[in-house]
Design a protein around this nucleic acid. Structure first.
Lengths: 212, 212
DNA sequence: TATTACAGACCGACCAGTCGGTACGATGAA
DNA sequence: TTCATCGTACCGACTGGTCGGTCTGTAATA
């Protein structure tokens, strides 16, 4: 049993506790008690409670960017890229739901230097999505009436908010929810020109959405 | 000067500080110093720091529900109601941006009894929006392919997330952003049957969205 | 005189972080 | 092979300081 290195054990324990009670709702003592170690063990592995919080942030956002970038690289059209990025998020979500909660809930408590390191990556993620939207608009697959930056934030909001309500034991999987999001987002953006491709990627397009 | 009752002064000060540094980033001492009063003054007006947090929550969510309900009552069709609710949120947002930030950031730190009181009202808000979507689907103005409850959460996410990025001094007002959201949401939901009414409410529908 | 509204010294609990110490495997000289 | 040495990983009592909340006192008002 108990073969995992201590650092990993502390990270996992802290993550679980932060997720349940928030960063300030959990003391270092609680963490070390739960992880069956000691203050010494903790501070041997982390410079501070703050650094621990940072590491939780970083592992998630790094992974999220990586997956989104993979999705972007794998496909070549804006429509398919958009779908792939939305899909990639479901994978990230399945693995990192607790991280995400902590990420969006506790990031204000990161010290300044950590904060800005995280912000750089956060912007990177947003930028990638915004690029896809802009490319789609340029090609005429997406409507030009809506500004790309606001649309991007609308999509990010829709996705990110799931951490507040998604229930692993609920009736829908994250993947099914993402499919619905794809449906909504594509319908909100697509032009007549883009429809043929959208039909292939989202089921409800095949039932022609212009008739009820 | 300084004619406001102390309780109000404390509320406003605390709100501002919570907004900047988070509930746990601000001590009661800091609050009373900034509000130019004392611990005595504070605990004369509030039973605990916790109750103060609750009051900030309650004043916002109560107002938000009221405005959404008004919007609902004032209009009679799902499409116009949806637009009105989205519009109502901008007003709430202008007045209560700080409250909203605190609301979504710190609600986990409310004690259980306060927590559930707030949850009741939060559900009320969601339910109202979900009703509108369902009615729209029943009447054939909104597409039936997307489940009403998930669509509701998508919209709520889109709206609520604005508290993370909206900048009062930015290039767009909250009202302009809401107009874009209306555009996106209506395009994602509307059926051919609903279009004539949507045209009246959102500009970009008049440039027929089926041609580019 | 009684009550309300506030002041501010004070208290006990708790908390992040420190520090002197230990357990133990690796290394290397005899 | 044996034993001294050293470095790493970890332990847990302790500290300095902060925090939410209390309590006694007082000035103003009614």
């Amino acid at each position: 049993m108990k073969k995992k290195p201590l650092k990993e054990r502390i990270l996992e324990t802290a993550l679980r506790l932060f997720n349940e009670k928030g960063f300030h709702g959990v003391s270092v003592e609680q963490i070390v008690d739960t992880a069956q170690t000691s203050k010494g063990g903790f501070y041997h592995n982390f410079k501070s409670k703050d650094e621990l919080l940072y590491q939780i942030h970083d592992v998630f956002i790094t992974y999220a960017i990586e997956k989104a970038q993979e999705a972007y690289d794998e496909y070549k059209t804006p429509i398919s890229r958009l779908c792939a990025i939305l899909h990639s998020f479901t994978k990230v979500f399945d693995v990192y739901q607790s991280h995400i909660t902590v990420f969006y809930q506790e990031s204000i408590y990161l010290s300044n230097s950590f904060q800005s390191a995280i912000n750089v990556k956060r912007d990177q993620y947003r930028y990638l999505l915004e690029q896809v939207i802009q490319e789609g608009q340029k090609l005429g697959d997406f409507r030009k009436e809506v500004p790309a930056n606001i649309t991007t934030m609308a999509i990010i909001g829709m996705i990110n908010w799931t951490y507040k309500w998604f229930d692993q034991k609920g009736p829908l999987t994250m993947e099914e929810i993402a499919d619905i999001f794809k449906d909504l987002i594509l319908h909100s953006l697509i032009t007549e020109q883009g429809k043929p491709e959208a039909v292939k990627l989202v089921k409800s397009f095949s039932r022609n959405s212009t008739t009820r």
